[in-house]
Design a protein around this nucleic acid. Structure first.
Lengths: 255, 255
DNA sequence: GACGGCCGTCCGACACTATCGGATAGATTT
DNA sequence: AAATCTATCCGATAGTGTCGGACGGCCGTC
């Protein structure tokens, strides 16, 4: 069952290749020297990795300046398109965003992180900071906590141990016992809130999607500025979320 | 300048890792044994690559069955979003698709391949087979030929040598001299056609976007069934494309 | 209920190969 | 014109990826 046994150190060269890829992801562009400097790797090592990635077609090399190419875009889009759950859920999330005029998300647990597989937003929310595939800790997001609450206890513990609970915003829960108490509440209420726990000023409201055995498929979320989501309109939001959850449950059982 | 000197064989382990990734891209899902069989690699080798990729968070492992995860989706989306050219061009291509009610594309040359960086379609075209990042040969697509025609001669030759000109559809040009003649025509007319050259029954019409030095940034294309794009409406299509090209040229010089 | 096949995982030895420092050539700047 | 930056290439070493085999769990069959 548990397979992260003794051999944790594996394939160092693959690891450094992806360190370079992640560097280019964040910096958009980079030269051999710049990457070698930042990653504290020998220039020649970086060079051989870059030329290999270039030969494989994943990079563009404009005169010494490398950037990630569209081959990786196609890879990501293909993954996205072949995900059946996403296809089923997406329309509902989009109407939810339009109904509420706020950002709406559908997230799943992947590698112990809350991972947005659908992101949508209404007309009045301007920012589109979050991309599909964006990941955050399970412990400080509403979707994460909604899913976490319905996972087997040993899994919950494993995830917490792996990713920790550092403070990221004013409201972040950093105490383990406090989190467990909140998860209990979430199980009882069937709804999860996150008040400025990952991002200052952001209120998130989420409900899980469970299968027949009570295992979570994912969670539906609506998020917006705390100021805008005041108490009286919050009831309406919860209602809209419940409608979306219901719709998704039906569509999942129809497949 | 040319840097694919003697050391062409590099970083074999990185290469096999991406062979596995590409396998999962096309097959969606796979087990250790299945991948090892198909790729003719030892099981233990595949296993170590998969566990490494899993540790890095790029994979999902559902009880022995691996699939690519949303971390790669996020990578692709980030690349897409950080591409300034795409951001500038996208709105124009979308209105072009709506105006013409056909599929519209913007493609660039990347690693010697015509690479779609924007894909859009009108209301009446149903299929959305093509994803952003999709790549095709420069020699049998309208965008590819439109770009190719304005590249330096030595580059043209290099690309042809690298990717060849195999027959892929009834109309594919497989003769090198014939291609060079057509590129001459394209340079003279400023417009490129592809009649069932990559896909049977598909007509593509494309025009290049050139910078002040005459170097191609990319190309705008409209494509649809040959039957529907008959001669009388073709003039209207060309007109719409010219409008789009003009708009893009203005937006590029404004940046 | 026991057996046989198949699977994923793990181990260990060897050959290979990724790594790393240094050297070279070109470009750009002072 | 010299100096400093760059990317690229080379060669030797040690580390490491590869590969065959073995273990144990799972499932279907006999």
């Amino acid at each position: 069952m548990a397979q992260q046994g003794p051999g944790t150190k594996q394939l160092k060269s693959v690891r450094t290749t992806f360190k370079i890829v992640e560097y280019l992801k964040h910096e958009t562009t980079g030269s051999v020297s710049a990457i070698a400097d930042q990653l504290e790797l020998p220039k020649s090592t970086v060079h051989s990795h870059l030329t290999t990635l270039n030969q494989l077609g994943y990079l563009r090399n404009d005169d010494g300046t490398y950037r990630l190419g569209y081959r990786l875009v196609h890879l990501g889009r293909t993954i996205e398109q072949s995900d059946e759950l996403r296809r089923i859920v997406a329309p509902t999330i989009e109407t939810l965003a339009n109904e509420t005029d706020e950002q709406a998300y559908f997230a799943i647990e992947e590698n112990g992180l809350a991972t947005n597989i659908v992101v949508a937003e209404g007309t009045c929310s301007i920012r589109r900071e979050f991309l599909p595939g964006g990941q955050a800790r399970m412990t400080n997001t509403a979707t994460g906590k909604a899913i976490l609450a319905h996972l087997p206890p040993e899994r919950i513990d494993e995830i917490i141990q792996r990713w920790g609970m550092p403070a990221e915003a004013p409201g972040t829960i950093t105490d383990e016992d406090e989190l467990y108490a909140e998860l209990e509440t979430i199980r009882a209420d069937g709804i999860a809130y996150a008040r400025a726990e990952s991002i200052k000023g952001l209120l998130e409201i989420a409900m899980p999607i469970l299968d027949d055995d009570g295992q979570p498929h994912g969670a539906v979320e609506v998020a917006g500025p705390i100021k805008r989501l005041d108490d009286e309109c919050r009831e309406r939001l919860v209602d809209d979320i419940e409608t979306a959850v219901n719709e998704i449950e039906v569509n999942l059982s129809l497949r």
